[in-house]
């Protein structure tokens, strides 16, 4: 089973402040990858009201493509990142065209089952193509470790990751709020029928949303692959589900909500790793049940009453 955070247990726990600091960094990184995954879910849900169940597999595909490019080419790491994200974006585009778009008239459950089919297909195809074993992901980066006063260590890899996530999130926020395509996305999310009447090319906007979400998912996959130095065909399943939980937690359909939900979940899991590591994977689902019982619209979500 895909298991980001497995590496967390492997590190010998240090005592006192250094340990707390390290766990905060771990929580930030894990949380921000959940946020990146959650963004893919939340944008698609906002526009189509469907759970793209195959999103976790796009994340896995991104990580594998990144690994493959690293192993077979001499491209700089940044280019690897970019190309892998593009490949995942293309995959997202194809999935929407083949498995979701023809079902836009169908009930939500039909689409969900189709999405589950895509997920199982990709997962098991990768199992056959790449084999079930977990692989190392040697990033072509020179990693420096900085030792700060108080016994605190901080690596350049961690810095890169956090920087990248901040840049991506800020960029996404700008894209959605300031650009024409972002405006179109918001319009379609608000009311597809009205958006269509206004002459917004709905199909293009939906495709773009899938492309964008898939690209972000792939970035998350590579980050996790590099940070925990492990990639395997089933790695997308749990983070995929947890990304969804993060999206629900923050308020599905809300972009800041996805960011917040991811961080909360990341920190909760890191805390869980310390106190009850073997039940770590159950934390997300307990969160899910709790949030759905207390505030189903999520922390930053709008509450909606069903139209009758």
């Amino acid at each position: 089973m895909g298991n980001p955070g497995a590496g967390l247990c492997a590190r010998p726990p240090e005592r006192g402040f250094p340990m707390v600091f390290e766990q905060i960094i771990n929580g930030l990184i894990l949380g921000s990858t959940y946020s990146l995954i959650a963004l893919g879910y939340t944008m698609v849900y906002g526009i189509l009201e469907m759970i793209n169940f195959a999103h976790g597999e796009i994340y896995m595909f991104g990580a594998f493509t990144g690994l493959w490019l690293t192993l077979t080419t001499n491209l700089p790491f940044v280019a690897t990142f970019l190309l892998a994200s593009l490949a995942a974006a293309a995959l997202g585009f194809v999935i929407e065209r083949v498995a979701y778009r023809p079902l836009r008239r169908s009930s939500r459950i039909t689409v969900l089952i189709s999405a589950i089919g895509v997920s199982i297909f990709l997962q098991n195809l990768m199992l056959i193509v790449a084999g079930p074993q977990t692989r190392d992901f040697p990033a072509k980066l020179s990693i420096v470790t900085w030792h700060l006063p108080g016994g605190v260590a901080f690596t350049s890899l961690q810095a890169y990751i956090l920087l990248l996530v901040v840049v991506l999130m800020a960029g996404l926020q700008l894209l959605v709020q300031r650009t024409k395509i972002g405006q179109a996305m918001r319009a379609v999310a608000q009311d597809r029928e009205v958006a269509r009447l206004m002459g917004i090319p709905i199909d293009k906007v939906i495709s773009f949303t899938f492309v964008l979400g898939s690209g972000l998912g792939a970035v998350a996959g590579i980050i996790i692959g590099v940070y925990f130095n492990s990639v395997d065909p089933l790695m997308g399943m749990l983070p995929g589900l947890k990304g969804f939980v993060a999206a629900v937690l923050g308020g599905i359909g809300s972009i800041p909500g996805a960011m917040l939900g991811g961080l909360i979940l990341g920190f909760a899991e890191v805390a869980g790793t310390i106190y009850m590591s073997s039940y770590k994977d159950a934390i997300a689902f307990c969160f899910l049940v709790l949030i759905l019982l207390i505030k189903p619209s999520g922390i930053l979500g709008r509450s909606l009453q069903e139209k009758v």
Binding site: T110, S114, G117, V118, Q123
Partner: peptide
């Protein structure tokens, strides 16, 4: 086998969401 399961689900939903012995579909 499991790859086939995946394809089967997609193809069924696309072509025959009511299943082989089609009872009712979900709404619509």
């Amino acid at each position: 086998r499991q790859v086939i399961y995946g394809v089967l689900l997609i193809v069924l939903m696309l072509c025959r969401p009511q299943g082989l012995f089609g009872g009712a579909t979900y709404k619509r």
